[in-house]
Structure formats: structure tokens, C-alpha cells
Design a protein around this nucleic acid. Structure first.
Lengths: 139, 139
DNA sequence: ATCTCCTATGATATAATATAACATTACATT
DNA sequence: AATGTAATGTTATATTATATCATAGGAGAT
């Protein structure tokens, strides 16, 4: 938490109450939380919020790398290493529903090996790369 | 198309008209299609369908590896190599919106290298591994 | 043949996720 | 104070997905 406060101060980003609260909510969890679950927790914390409030806070947090979206769940998790620009790998346990971020170095080389080394038993991977295809690049 | 008809025959799977049509629709596209876009195209083709019809057909096709879901888009694409049990890697072009499946071998070793070799300029990767975490495995 | 079971489909409703659009506030700079 | 920009408030609605129950259709048993 202090990490990101520091970071925002130096980068001159506004870590407003609602943004801070959303981050705190996610920090407490080991599983991904959906936007509407976050919204409920915001309300319990006294923020009488509508959906756009949660989505805006999440947009901010994701944009600056404090939070990641888990695409296969439409859920969100706090980043384990905010500030570091990295390409995260998530290990999603189908039994306890935990979402763990694999060590950054894991992305560099053999994927399943790297994940195995963490003790995670991979059953299925979802790998999507976003960028520019060769056809478009040639234009 | 013949591939999957063969495959279904040997495996005794029912490739019903609506399933076949959904697959044909996806085969024609280079981009991912959302379920409701597929539904529209089904209707244009004379299937007067409700959402569950499209989702059921997609469930069937995904379950048997004929179609993949692109999680970051909530869209679907025909599999480029149906029948082969593989862990696909998708290259999603942000300019032309095309979705290409990288050659299977690419998953084995360095990811960004493998993708670069295809001429695709990676800007961001989404990697999610589903399985069992070490804590749950120990129980 | 018809009965039974299982799978697939039809149909309605609704849940869950996400954003558009516009009004208002808050705060920094001029 | 006046202005501009970013954030928030608020309402409505778009988009994605599933629960539920009813109906049909085909394969195997009697």
C-alpha cells in the first residue's frame, strides 16, 4: 500500500479515496474479485457507488499497473509488484480459486517449466498476444 | 470443414445443423466473433435462434476443440487445427483485428521469440494458467 | 412397433458484466 | 474571481451469459 502511495506521489497521480479503497479491497483477497463484488464492498465501506465508479477506479489502477484484470474470469487482482512494468503470468487454482502471479523471470523462457518450478500443476494455459500482425506492419 | 465432420463421425459426436452452421460462420472470419454477432448471422441463415442456442453450439464446439474462445475479447474463432489437442497461442492484431493461432510448437520454448518469428510484433501478452496450486495439491 | 431414456432444441426470463452520456464538483493555474 | 481539467455523481442502457422449464427427436430395449 505504501508502495503505491509513494509511486503516485512521485508520478503526480491522484490516488483518490475511492481508488485507494478499491486497491485495499483487492489487497485483502487471494482470489480475483468481479467489479460488482468490489462495488458491494465499496458500498459497505460507505461509498454509495454506482457501477461506473468501480470501473473508473479499476481502469485507473489497471492503467498504472497496480491491478491486473484476469480475462478468463472478468475479475481483478492487486499486482504483486506494482510499478514494475512486466508481462505477468497468472496461476489460477481451480480448487481454491486463488490467483497468484508467477515470478517475472518466468516469462522469459519455457513457460510450463517455469510454472512447474513454482509447484503449480498446469492443466490449461490461456495465451493471447496483442500487437500488430505482419500484414499490418508491412503497410 | 470435412475434417470436423470426419472427426465427429469417428467419435460419435452429433454435428447438428446449428453447430455446423456456427462453425461455418466462424471459418469465414479472420477476426473473433461475439456470441451475439454469431446469433445474428444464424438468424440471417434462417435459424430463428435465441441466445442459449448460440451459446450451446459454442460450448459444444469449444469443448471438442473445434473453436477457441478469445478471453480478452469475449469472442470466438475457429480452431486452425481441430482434433489436435494443443495449448493454443493467439496473436490478436490491434490494427486489423485479426486473430491468428501461432504454430503449436511455439508454446514449447521462448514465447516472445517464437511469436517474433511469425512476424507478429507483440505489445502485450495475456498469460493465464489454470490448474492446481501447490497448497491444494498438498492436501 | 412402442416405450423409454437421453440428448438436443425451443422459449422465456433474468443474471452478470460493462459503458454511454451528461451533470456536477473540486482543485490547480492564471 | 475566472478558467480549465480531471474526477465524481447519476441515470440509463448496452453487452455478455446463464437458469429454468417445456418440447422434440433419435437410439436401444422390450
Amino acid at each position: 500500500m505504501e508502495n503505491i502511495e509513494e509511486y503516485c506521489k512521485t508520478k503526480n497521480l491522484k490516488l483518490t479515496p475511492v481508488r485507494q479503497k478499491v486497491f485495499q479491497i483487492l489487497l485483502k483477497e487471494t482470489s480475483g474479485l468481479g467489479a460488482y463484488r468490489i462495488l458491494d464492498l465499496l458500498r459497505e465501506a460507505g461509498f454509495n457507488s454506482q457501477p461506473p465508479v468501480a470501473y473508473r477506479a479499476l481502469d485507473f489502477l489497471v492503467e498504472h499497473g497496480f491491478v491486473h484484470k484476469i480475462e478468463s474470469q472478468n475479475s481483478f487482482v492487486a499486482c504483486s509488484d506494482p510499478g514494475a512494468h512486466h508481462s505477468p503470468i497468472f496461476m489460477i487454482c481451480k480448487k481454491c480459486d486463488s490467483v497468484l502471479e508467477a515470478p517475472v523471470s518466468a516469462s522469459a523462457s519455457d513457460l510450463s517449466e517455469a510454472l512447474m518450478a513454482t509447484g503449480f500443476q498446469v492443466e490449461q494455459t490461456i495465451i493471447e498476444a496483442e500487437g500488430v500482425c505482419s500484414t499490418c506492419a508491412d503497410k
